Simulated assay, not measured.
Amino acid sequence: MALLKIKVKPNSKQQALQKEVDGSFTVHLKSPPVEGKANQELIQFLAKHLGVPKSQITIKSGLSSRHKFVEVPDVNP
């Protein structure tokens, strides 16, 4: 399993994934950061982008923060 450092930007016009210079990722999501909607969209987006089941993606820390550590199976995004 790999641990990704992700900065989430909710309420964006489009979904997008950007790799930053420091090796972390910025994910733009359409959902608002209300009642876990952005977290659910993040898991769905990463699962689709990485081609893995949603059940294999876990937010390890940062559930209520824009900065998250997400555990994913070993694949190259």
Rank of each mutant, 00 (worst) to 15 (best):
residue 54 K to Q: 15
residue 5 K to E: 11
residue 11 N to H: 06
residue 47 A to E: 03
residue 67 H to D: 13
residue 31 S to H: 10
residue 32 P to W: 07
residue 44 Q to N: 13
residue 18 Q to A: 09
residue 22 D to N: 14
residue 46 L to R: 06
residue 34 V to A: 08
residue 27 V to E: 05
residue 18 Q to S: 11
residue 63 L to C: 03
residue 34 V to Q: 09
residue 10 P to D: 00
residue 20 E to P: 06
residue 56 Q to M: 09
residue 13 K to G: 07
residue 45 F to G: 05
residue 22 D to M: 06
residue 41 E to R: 09
residue 51 G to V: 11
residue 27 V to I: 15
residue 8 V to R: 02
residue 17 L to T: 04
residue 23 G to M: 08
residue 73 P to K: 03
residue 10 P to H: 00
residue 75 V to F: 04
residue 11 N to P: 01
residue 75 V to D: 00
residue 23 G to S: 13
residue 42 L to V: 08
residue 6 I to A: 06
residue 40 Q to N: 14
residue 52 V to C: 12
residue 23 G to E: 07
residue 14 Q to D: 05
residue 51 G to A: 12
residue 77 P to V: 14
residue 61 S to I: 04
residue 18 Q to H: 11
residue 24 S to D: 05
residue 13 K to Q: 11
residue 63 L to E: 10
residue 26 T to L: 14
residue 67 H to E: 13
residue 16 A to Q: 07
residue 76 N to G: 06
residue 1 M to P: 02
residue 41 E to S: 08
residue 73 P to G: 02
residue 51 G to T: 09
residue 65 S to L: 06
residue 19 K to D: 07
residue 14 Q to A: 08
residue 76 N to W: 04
residue 76 N to Y: 04
residue 67 H to I: 05
residue 66 R to C: 02
residue 76 N to M: 11
residue 44 Q to S: 15
residue 14 Q to M: 02
residue 2 A to G: 05
residue 32 P to T: 10
residue 23 G to N: 13
residue 4 L to M: 14
residue 52 V to R: 05
residue 27 V to G: 01
residue 46 L to Q: 03
residue 7 K to G: 00
residue 10 P to V: 03
residue 67 H to A: 10
residue 8 V to T: 07
residue 20 E to F: 01
residue 15 Q to M: 07
residue 20 E to N: 14
residue 58 T to P: 03
residue 62 G to S: 11
residue 34 V to N: 09
residue 28 H to R: 10
residue 20 E to R: 14
residue 24 S to K: 11
residue 51 G to Y: 12
residue 1 M to Q: 00
residue 57 I to W: 06
residue 38 A to Y: 09
residue 13 K to S: 12
residue 34 V to F: 13
residue 60 K to L: 14
residue 26 T to C: 11
residue 76 N to S: 14
residue 12 S to I: 01
residue 17 L to E: 01
residue 73 P to M: 05
residue 52 V to M: 01
residue 13 K to F: 07
residue 6 I to H: 00
residue 58 T to D: 12
residue 60 K to A: 10
residue 61 S to D: 12
residue 36 G to L: 10
residue 65 S to K: 15
residue 55 S to K: 15
residue 75 V to A: 05
residue 73 P to Q: 05
residue 36 G to I: 11
residue 53 P to S: 12
residue 66 R to N: 15
residue 29 L to K: 02
residue 44 Q to D: 13
residue 31 S to A: 15
residue 64 S to A: 07
residue 32 P to N: 07
residue 32 P to K: 11
